[in-house]
Amino acid sequence: MESRKLSLFLAMLTTVLLIGPVVMALSSQGWELESLFVLPEEDMADIEERMTEFQNPGDFRITSEDLDTETGDFEVHAEFDSSVDFDILLRKFYAEVYLQEEAIGEVWLEDAVVFEAGEVKNFKLIGFIEDEFIDLDEDFDGEEDEIPDELIEEFMGDISGWDQDDYIGDMGYVQFENISVEIEVMGIDLLLEDIIGVEGS
């Protein structure tokens, strides 16, 4: 008899400790069974926010470009304003420099750079502009809006559709296309290839 009571007590103890919390959980969720297994709305909102941050970790901006018209060496100074609370390691960056629809050069990242969480970081891309596209700048020392049409026509060669503003010296209308970026975020290696379209400064 004593033994049965003990067995019953032990069985009841297990049952109460396992069923009780389920009932309490159900009660806290308005007796909706499904909601027991689903993340609370505030958690879902936090996750969505974090995912958005992960996809848009900050603002990338090109601050200036330098073209050495003697050698064709091309430097792009850029800044990244991190809006996330994790570091981002930019391992590689490569882009083709486009003017209108013409590829005129290439730029890449010289050394890997770490964008620290929440910080603004300046970094430099190096590269070149093809000789044929820097002649214009060599031959013209005036202001942008003073470029004579004849000069533009002379050096634009067979590139059609350019207008007076599309000259190389200022790089005002260059774009970076076919961009490849290799980054490491939270231990995850990400390789983004052939991204289209980042405008110059």
Partner: peptide, 25 residues
Amino acid sequence: VFMGEEISIPLLSYLLPAVQALLII
């Protein structure tokens, strides 16, 4: 934890402490 955000599942929040209590008992 997802990117530093702790994730909670309602059922587990209630059930697991009870399982812990059972283990202690």
